[in-house]
Design a binder for these strands. Structure first.
Lengths: 334, 334
DNA sequence: TCTCCAATCGAAAGCGCTTTACATGTGTAA
DNA sequence: TTACACATGTAAAGCGCTTTCGATTGGAGA
């Protein structure tokens, strides 16, 4: 391995000067040039561990994924958020460290992150206990789509999303509107349901108990089951607002299996705007979450925290706007 | 920060002994116990940079994602593969480092990985130049779904996959079978097309030029366009084998838009078995790739390389089996 | 009691870098 | 010519850990 000593010798300067030259500290042009030449010639690559040890700065951000459904990185929503996060963070030369997590979101994970010396932590898990937050530790942290005591959370404007969905349905003549809720232990699920009820009330529409069904963790199976319950009702809704696209797609499918037409008999509005939403039949009208922007905002907040380290009053929460994407799954009632 | 010195002092031993105790080297039971107690009491966490510096082992594996379509981590196929990889790697206490890649898959990326001192590299990119492979460097590397000169690649058995698809179609009475190919600069795209032709020949069926259309990078748009070309033919195929599920779903959609019935008028077989394959209408018959297993195999190969460092003859290539998943998109011809 | 050996522990060097505090050299003003 | 300020470079310490090799100790055997 070629070290700073080799460069120093080759260039005829001390290692201190080499270090300065490489870190853009004050050295003469001549020295800098000679050193850079040597670096080039010897194919020198600085050792990040040594640098981290000396500076106490790792240029790594720890990523903690929840275990929801055990899919981790492959989660359709979170992976896009992280992609947005990464795009921003790498502009500032941070790498992302995905740590082992057979330990869960607990003390062990935090200890491991501490061990790794990450400069910041981004937590991507929508439910479960917030053990790390409780530790009130020293590492700057940002949360995505999850409530927390600590400042630094980014999430979609779920309330407005629900409102957009309900209003769109109402504008199309629907009054018998059901809601397939997301898991009621998740922040998003709770907020969307809350938004649904609020929007219905604002429209002067009743929120019927039997039109409120829990679809669980946003899965196909959950959406299917929830829809079956709705279909089994004597007085079926004419439209259903579903708290997640995956559930919505499953719901549409089972509706068709029951011999009903979508959207003529039952209309659907989803939430997320996953890639396939526009490719199913009928194309799904949905509330789009800007995953990339969520990730980017989280990165901005975290980098700010890292750079100011509590000196300034940090951003508390950041709500990212959502939008209604009209496609073909909503029918206009006569 | 509490260091090994604090532990040493607290426990009444030297730092050397502390280090040994923590690394399960030979120390007396008594010493070990006292040291462990001190660790507990002072909330000591070892510093990985220091350890890495001293041992030249980072316990990190670098992950290089391709930029195909700019989706990176959120790629529906690769993210699942990486998830499988991670599950295995973390059993052995490795963390995954996703490095910045505004640099692409070139020398710069490799330099950065070297800088980080990762113990191994997993390359997840299906096409483009293999700059890193060319460098014939020292860091153990494994490739996923991509040909390489270096030993250490994992990929699905694309040839057999194509054969399964074609045979299934033939068994259902189809003879006019088209193929929407994946991008012909990707390994998978090439192999699947090759397998298609081979299987057709084996069945004694002609491979008609106009039944072979390129869908590009496995995207919705590509699948749609390719299908339109097929639909525009005077003599349409009765079945099409599509090299990717996303393209297949787009193809089915446009077929229905053209007023044809799926699968009665045209049958479809996809490739991948993405999550939504079974939730579209009709549910897509497809060739399943075992993404988790691919990732796991890659991890096994890489860890083996890391641990043997060229001393043994390493595994060259590893082909992961695929399977036919029968659903509702194939119609039996009378 | 003395010798010898095995078990146990510790001093110190070293991993590759940054940074402080000081030494040297150069040019400028008096 | 002398004094001084500034620019430039360096020695050395330190970041937190591992590991080698020698020192110390205690017990077994004679």
């Amino acid at each position: 391995m070629v070290t700073i000593y080799d460069i120093a010798e080759h260039a005829g300067y001390s290692i201190a000067t080499v270090s300065k030259a490489l870190n853009n500290k004050k050295v003469s042009e001549k020295a800098k040039q000679k050193i850079l030449d040597a670096v080039e010639e010897l194919h020198y690559t600085p050792n990040s561990s040594a640098r981290t040890l000396a500076t106490n700065k790792s240029w790594m951000i720890g990523v903690v994924f929840g275990e929801n459904l055990g899919i981790g990185i492959a989660h359709p929503f979170f992976s896009q958020v992280i992609e947005g996060f990464k795009k921003h963070a790498e502009l500032y030369n941070y790498d992302l460290l995905f740590v082992s997590r057979h330990m869960g979101l607990g003390q062990e994970t935090y200890k491991h992150l501490l061990h790794r010396g990450v400069d910041g932590i981004v937590i991507v898990q929508s439910h479960g206990e917030d053990e790390i937050g409780k530790l009130n530790h020293a590492i700057p942290t940002v949360y995505i789509d999850r409530p927390t005591n600590e400042p630094g959370t980014v999430y979609s404007d779920n309330l407005t999303g629900s409102k957009l969905a309900v209003n769109h349905l109402v504008e199309n003549g629907h009054t018998k509107i059901a809601h397939i809720m997301g898991e009621q232990t998740t922040f998003a699920g709770i907020e969307r349901a809350k938004g649904f009820k609020k929007a219905m009330r604002e429209q002067g529409l009743p929120v019927r108990e039997e039109y409120l069904v829990d679809g669980g963790f946003y899965s196909h199976a959950g959406g299917r089951e929830a829809m079956i319950r709705l279909l089994s009702l004597n007085d079926r809704p004419t439209a259903v607002y579903v708290a997640g696209d995956v559930m919505a797609i499953a719901a549409m499918k089972v509706t068709k299996e029951w011999g009903l037409r979508v959207p003529e008999d039952i209309s659907f509005v989803g939430f997320d705007d996953i890639k396939l939403a526009k490719h199913v039949d009928p194309a799904l009208t949905t509330i789009r979450q800007d995953k990339g922007l969520i990730g980017q905002q989280a990165a901005i907040i975290l980098l700010d925290k890292i750079n100011t380290q509590g000196s300034t009053q940090n951003v508390d929460k950041k709500m990212v706007p959502v939008s209604l994407i009209k496609r073909d799954s909503v029918h206009r009632l006569a």
